[in-house]
Design a binder for these strands. Structure first.
Lengths: 341, 341
DNA sequence: CTGTTAGCGCTTTCAC
DNA sequence: GTGAAAGCGCTAACAG
């Protein structure tokens, strides 16, 4: 049988209450007593039963998710995953509330974070907009002892406890190699469609992509980035325009959202040409395009995994517990038409 | 506040004990009483607090993992993950015991399973050898109400509750497309190195691989499969031999273990040639080979995920609870040198 | 500073 | 058949 608080109490010759005070580092215990108890804990090899503790405390974890109000498939998916987590909330003693704020709007994000500083939830997960004022607001929360994790997009140099998202530089590099190898030494231009160079994940993907293309596929040259604001209409116009003007395009890398527009443009303007296309995020649209051959590979991040991971990490931080690293590493999923889930 | 057993008792006008009997479908309750309680449960929207129940019961989950005593990196990794789970056991109330049996040995496996039928653990996870007698033994366990999940390799047509592993046909198909696209329309032979055609995962990988090559890359032809018994020495000999005899080899697909030998052969015999190589399982050896360019892509299954998933599923089955499907789908990881973890 | 006691939500004797 | 009461491991008043 696992040792319990009673065993510690007996071994240390004190009462349960004192053991509890030591275990929870509460004040009001003489130094010597504390040491006695701590020794007993160590010698006996005690590990606290978190479930019992939570039961006794009636503890629940009020968490807040701050999500951008973006109208694209990926964000809808992320939202759905958060709602799924809310549905499971009673089981894991969490109480998840979500706040929607305008996308790409640091001020709104900061306002929300400051409000939460008052409210003091047990943890906060946010899709970060990479701006200094956001970083400051996050750092203040961390200083005040509130666990914070970034979701999907990280926050440069901030003190957030954890990032639940993929390595976007690696994603860009991977896209480059896939495109380069699939093109098999061909010469020509590569068009890049992004959402906005103001968000960190897009910048990082481009950075990784450009680096590998330059170093390992010198016969390819990258055209100036098209910024489609993750908007299907805009993406369509930009890509269609580029395809008609530039005859030398052999490949496309779409590193943001709004792929619906991209796909439409590809079908309209390049059905005849054999472009190689790599895009991000598996959605109904990109999936269909992968199957019909319009897209050759899709890089994806599993929103469900990201949300569950964020919750596990927030919980662990709230309890001062360790996490299983391997379980919290968000993988870059690569989908070809052969391994779709 | 979530409703508790007290609320049900009050609403139904019975005692806690009766509520409990109904909740746990224990006998000794009149039909009418049972109905009263069941109605109350439904109306109130009660969900049982599993943690509290486990605490009261002092419940632990004795699980058994049956693993093959194979001496390759993948199995070592799997073993390590099981040990890591054992280390976490106190926290999740599991008691995991592992049994090692000779690899590729249906009889030994059946013997172990029959023994466990007596012992009646709360759940069993096994790396299945695909044989009819194994299937029968598994089905008998399932009939006797013991949760069973297959790990890494599945069992054809059996009634196991769940399979914690990748879709190996899809893995083979993916390998084929990667190889085919990377070769960019080149003509030539493809060598395939397997462990044994007696295990289902290897057969399935080959099946998927051959299908896509035949359908979509007709300029490639697959040489007769080399069976290396997942043994580095043997793999070395077979591959070295094939490379020196067959001048037309342009690609290699290694779908089993024993890649240490493969890599050695490639370095010795094909350093000059530009072979395209796809292999399975990320280990120290394959990782190094991916980085130095000897291997072009690695397909992997995350052993840690598989073990954790198996445990979650066994627990859920033992409690008659549902699982989160997305969380239990084991992905096929694709690694290029750019997205190594 | 330390100990006693009640109780978290559920299960389990043991009476009635 | 049903209920009262004690207890799982831990925490939180409240005394002392």
């Amino acid at each position: 049988m696992r040792p319990t608080v009673h065993d510690i109490a007996a071994a240390a010759g004190v009462s349960l209450a004192t053991v509890d005070r030591v275990l929870n580092q509460r004040p009001g215990v003489r130094h010597v007593t504390r040491e006695k108890v701590e020794n007993a804990i160590r010698e006996i090899g005690y590990v606290r039963d978190v479930a019992a503790a939570n039961l006794a405390k009636g503890r629940t974890y009020p968490f807040v998710f701050i999500l951008p109000a973006s109208d694209n498939s990926f964000m809808h998916g992320l939202n759905a995953e958060v709602r799924a987590a809310v549905a499971r909330a009673p089981v894991d003693r969490t109480e998840i509330r979500t706040i929607e704020i305008p996308a790409f709007d640091p001020d709104a994000l900061v306002a929300a974070l400051e409000m939460l500083g008052e409210e003091r939830p047990s943890g906060i997960a946010l899709v970060a907009t990479d701006a200094p004022e956001v970083r400051e607001a996050v750092d203040k929360l961390v200083e005040n002892g509130i666990p914070v994790v970034t979701l999907v997009s990280d926050l440069t140099g901030s003190r957030r406890h954890h990032y639940a998202g993929v390595d976007n530089i690696a994603a860009g590099r991977t896209a480059a190699r896939l495109l380069g190898r699939f093109l098999g030494g061909a010469e020509g231009d590569v068009a890049v469609l992004a959402g906005s160079m103001l968000v960190r994940d897009h910048r990082e993907r481009l950075e990784g992509f450009a680096a590998v293309i330059a170093r390992e596929f010198p016969s390819l040259s990258i055209l100036p980035v098209l910024e489609g604001r993750d908007d299907p209409e805009m993406a369509y116009m930009l890509v269609a325009d580029a395809l008609s003007k530039k005859g030398g395009i052999v490949g496309v890398y779409s590193l943001g959202a709004g792929n619906r527009g991209l796909i439409k443009a590809l079908k309209a303007r390049a059905a005849d040409r054999s472009l190689t296309v790599v895009a991000h995020e598996l959605t109904a649209h990109t999936r269909a395009a992968l199957i019909d051959g319009t897209i050759d590979a899709i890089l994806n991040q599993d929103a469900g995994h990201e949300v569950r991971s964020a919750i596990r990490v927030l919980k662990a931080k709230a309890d001062g517990l360790a996490v299983i690293d391997g379980q919290e590493r968000i993988r870059l999923d690569i989908f070809l038409k052969d391994n779709l889930p």
